[in-house]
């Protein structure tokens, strides 16, 4: 029943996206493809934080794993695209499993610190093993539009199609997972780990599973991003990327898949839009190059003030019960906050 509803919704969205990509210009298609890549990664992250109650400041590193896996597979083995995407997700999931095993033992700020370290350290491996990973200039990723679409088919529309398809499939799978026994278990251990353990849940295993799932999503997102931007290089997977994924998840509404979509749209479209506006108003280049960064900050502050539970939470409040629920924000952050916050039991 749930599955049918989710698949139905995804198909409806797919039709809308298909119409949009045909009607809009090639650069909008490119942005849609970019947004779809981010949606895939942010959806995994929002589940990790919002459902299982663990934080990761290093999800950009898992995107890097997926992206490099995709680039290497395309470059050396020339696999078909679907296989490359699946393999990237699996490889990133394996990396997530290793980190998750450690993460299951860490809490709050320590987990944040460990994942932060990952985000900082991992990209420099590309420099260390420049022979394999191409060093600072990275590896180029070339994807050709299939012949059956004809030679005049815009390549960016094809990119938008494959990335949106991958993103939608991911969202459907995640939506089902969230409603399943696993999703309920995650919520249980997020709300009270001791109670969850007493009820017979294997806390460590569930926490690790959350990490595996979310890093698989990040890996797929990274592979999609690699295909969209034609290149994987360490500069693209810096700390700023990890932080912006986290921002998108919080901005959209933690734990909400629709929120992941809103957050990613803000991530992709706001900077371009603001740059265009700033340039068209004749601001000096020094000023206009900083305006998008400032605008992003303003959006973040305003959303957090007006909709403390993110955009999806805000929509839900405005529209009533129509929009699906978004989790209360900052659960992952708050439950391990200093003892001054009384209502939290905290696990130490």
């Amino acid at each position: 029943m749930t599955l049918a509803r989710h698949v139905g919704a995804a198909l409806a969205v797919a039709v809308v996206l298909a119409i949009l990509t045909i009607r809009l210009g090639p650069f909008r298609d490119y942005q849609i493809a970019e947004a779809a890549a981010y949606v895939t990664a942010v959806a995994g992250l929002t589940y990790l934080i919002g459902l299982s109650g663990q934080i990761s400041i290093g999800h950009g590193a898992f995107m890097a794993v997926g992206a490099y896996a995709a680039a290497l597979l395309l470059l050396h083995l020339d696999w078909p695209l679907e296989a490359v995407f699946a393999a990237s997700a699996v490889i990133a999931a394996a990396a997530g499993g290793i980190i998750g095993a450690a993460a299951a033992r860490l809490r709050g700020p320590y987990l944040a610190g460990a994942t932060l370290m990952l985000a900082v350290a991992l990209p420099s491996l590309a420099d260390k093993y420049a022979g394999v990973f191409g060093g600072d200039q990275g590896l180029s990723v070339a994807v050709t539009t299939p012949a059956w679409l004809g030679t005049t088919f815009p390549p960016t529309r094809w990119l938008a199609w494959i990335t949106c398809a991958a993103a939608l499939i991911t969202l459907v799978l995640l939506a089902n997972l969230g409603r399943s026994r696993i999703g309920r278990s995650w919520r249980a251990l997020r709300d009270d780990e001791i109670a969850a353990a007493l009820s017979g849940l294997n806390v460590a295993r569930m926490r690790m599973l959350a990490f595996v799932v979310s890093s698989a999503c990040a890996g797929l997102g990274g592979a999609l991003l690699a295909v969209v931007t034609d290149i994987v290089s360490p500069g693209a997977f810096n700390l700023a990327l990890s932080i912006s994924l986290l921002t998108a998840a919080i901005l959209g509404g933690l734990g909400s898949l629709a929120g992941a979509v809103w957050g990613s749209l803000v991530l992709v479209f706001v900077p371009t839009y603001v740059t265009d506006v700033a340039n068209s108003h004749g601001l000096s280049s020094g000023a206009s190059s900083n305006v998008p960064i400032a605008a992003y900050g303003v959006v973040l502050i305003v959303v957090m003030l007006v909709f403390p539970s993110g955009i999806q939470g805000g929509l839900r409040r405005l529209l009533g019960p129509v929009a699906p629920a978004a989790r209360p924000p900052f659960n992952a952050l708050r439950r391990h906050a200093p003892a001054s916050e009384k209502q939290e039991e905290g696990t130490r």
Binding site: F27, L225, G235
Partner: peptide, 11 residues
């Protein structure tokens, strides 16, 4: 940032 380079040049 090469990822941003790709975006702005596509634009």
């Amino acid at each position: 940032n090469p990822a941003l380079t790709s975006t702005v040049v596509h634009q």
